[in-house]
Every structure is written in structure tokens, then in C-alpha cells.
């Protein structure tokens, strides 16, 4: 058989890459391109007609105050969540790599929230906030207290708390890998040269773990920007739509209010903003990376 013949190449390519290619094109590439087209139509989700409306959907998206409020909320939420997730994850990773007994047990335990889907986690926490927290508050104050989830600020706080709890264990695993990649000999050398453990951490370990930080921050930014499951089950956007985050707004715009074109345009804008923030972060982070 001649291995340079075109027919051989085509048959090889289609046998091995064909199934993956078809599914990938069908679920990712075609919808992506078709989605770009949809943003220029005013489809209502039912009729066969998809009237062409030019840039109207983008105008609608840019003038949709609820959308920009949701985006602003997402920014605030992501800002706090990303910082707290990474701070807690780093602290946990530090604790479980310090040589304490039962490290593996603790690692496995902190990871547990990641095993369970956002919908179930949201409802578990809804119960905790609505019943357990209220019961504790009632016992302390002696009166009856409203749930944290019933105030706008409280609902956002709850969302942040749950996200931190949910993702810290996952990011911890990446930081653990980072801690393990820093050779002990370097830390010892720094200590012999007169560093305190805190200084060795700040000047040797953390700079060498920069790649882990860049990766964890990138992952937590993209996840927080796109959060939907927990938002839906924990707050459902309530009270008074004050905790609707961007992804939920996009979903409602498209599937609840049937403005598919505008919803798709808003989804694209959200994606572009998220990509810009993520790439900038990676770019800044990578610039100062040092090798061991």
C-alpha cells in the first residue's frame, strides 16, 4: 500500500479522526458560527422565520440596563470570590503539605464539594442559610431573624461564600502540586542563609509557584464569570432580581423572554469580556515568571 497516496491519507484520517471531527464540528464549531449569525436576527424560538435585523441586537444588548447591572454584579462577585478562593486554597495547600498527620485524608475531605453538582450544592446551602443559620441567630438574639438570602446584600454574600467553599478544594490540589514542585533543598538553602520560614515562603516558595497562581486565578475567574447552577438553585436571582448574575441573565433573556438574538449577543459580549480579563491576567502573570 502506498502511504503517500491521497486516498490512503483520507481513509486514515476519516477512520481515526472522523468521529471526533464530526461531533466536534456538530456541537462546537457549527453552533458557534451559527450563533454569530443568530445575533443579527430577531428569532423568537418558535417561528421558522429568522428576520434579519442587522446590529439591532447589539444595540439592544448595550442599552439593556438589567444586563449591565448583572455584569457589574458578576464583576463584584468574581472579584471577591476569586481572591477568597485562592487565599483559602493556598492556605489549605500549605497546611496539607506541611507534614501534618493525615494529609491525604484532609486533601480528600476538602475536595468533597467538587464531587457534587452546583444544583444540589445550592439547595444544600439554601437549607443551611434558611434554617440552620436562622436557628443559630434566633438562639443568640432570642428573637426571630430573617434569612441572609432574603436581603440583596446577604444573597450576594451567600453566593460568594458557597463559591469559595465549592472551589477552594479544587484549587488546593493545584497549589499542592505547586508546593511539591518547589525543591526542599532551595528552602533549606534559604534558611541556612538566615531566612526565617516566613521569608523563605515569601521570597523562595511563592515566586517559584507563580505558574500555579496564574493557573488557579485563571480557572477561578472563568468559572466565576460563567457561574449558573449555584446561582439558580441558591438564590434564583432573588430577592427582586438583585442576585441575577450575567449567565443567568443571558439564559433568561434567551429562554424565558424568547429574545434569542439579543440573548446570544449578550452571551458573546460576556464571553469576550471574560476572555479579555482571563488573558490579561495570564499575560501579566506569565511576564514575571521565574524558573527554579
Amino acid at each position: 500500500m502506498n502511504r503517500n497516496k491521497l486516498s490512503y491519507k483520507v481513509s486514515q484520517y476519516l477512520t481515526f479522526a472522523g468521529p471526533a471531527l464530526i461531533l466536534f464540528l456538530g456541537t462546537v464549531i457549527i453552533p458557534f458560527v451559527y450563533g454569530l449569525y443568530l445575533t443579527f436576527t430577531s428569532w423568537d424560538g418558535i417561528s421558522r422565520e429568522k428576520p434579519f435585523v442587522g446590529g439591532d441586537n447589539y444595540v439592544a444588548a448595550f442599552t439593556d440596563t438589567a444586563y449591565w447591572q448583572a455584569l457589574g454584579r458578576t464583576m463584584v462577585y468574581s472579584f471577591f470570590a476569586v481572591i477568597l478562593i485562592n487565599a483559602l486554597a493556598f492556605f489549605l495547600a500549605y497546611l496539607v503539605t506541611s507534614g501534618v498527620k493525615g494529609e491525604n485524608f484532609f486533601r480528600a475531605g476538602f475536595f468533597v464539594p467538587n464531587l457534587i453538582g452546583g444544583i444540589v450544592l445550592g439547595y444544600v446551602w439554601k437549607f443551611v442559610f434558611n434554617r440552620a443559620f436562622v436557628a443559630v441567630a434566633d438562639a443568640i438574639t432570642g428573637g426571630s431573624n430573617p434569612s441572609l438570602l432574603s436581603t440583596p446584600g446577604g444573597a450576594m454574600f451567600c453566593l460568594i461564600l458557597v463559591s469559595v467553599w465549592q472551589y477552594a478544594g479544587y484549587m488546593m490540589l493545584i497549589y499542592v502540586a505547586g508546593f511539591m514542585s518547589v525543591p526542599d533543598s532551595l528552602k533549606e538553602a534559604a534558611m541556612i542563609d538566615g531566612c526565617t520560614p516566613a521569608q523563605a515562603m515569601k521570597d523562595v516558595t511563592i515566586p517559584l509557584m507563580r505558574a500555579s497562581f496564574v493557573q488557579c486565578i485563571f480557572l477561578s475567574i472563568t468559572r466565576c464569570f460563567m457561574v449558573y447552577d449555584v446561582n439558580l438553585s441558591l438564590t434564583k436571582g432573588e430577592p427582586f432580581n438583585s442576585s441575577v448574575l450575567a449567565a443567568m441573565h443571558v439564559y433568561n433573556q434567551a429562554f424565558t423572554y424568547k429574545n434569542y438574538g439579543t440573548g446570544q449577543a449578550e452571551a458573546l459580549i460576556l464571553f469576550v469580556i471574560c476572555a479579555i480579563v482571563g488573558v490579561t491576567q495570564v499575560y501579566i502573570g506569565k511576564k514575571g515568571e521565574v524558573g527554579a
Binding site: 450563533g35 443568530l38 449558573y228 439564559y251 429562554f255 452571551a267 460576556l270 464571553f271
Partner: peptide
């Protein structure tokens, strides 16, 4: 080409694809 497309597509979040997916 396929490999570059795949790597590039990993940044696309599901929210961008859900409307056209349902539509198609």
C-alpha cells in the same frame, strides 16, 4: 487544522453555544 481548532475552542464557554445548539 483540526488540532488548532480544538485547542482554540477550549476557551468557548457553554453559554455562548447553548442558544444556537437549541436552535439547530
Amino acid at each position: 487544522l483540526l488540532f488548532s481548532l480544538m485547542v482554540a475552542s477550549m476557551v468557548i464557554p457553554f453559554q455562548v453555544l447553548m442558544v444556537p445548539l437549541v436552535s439547530v
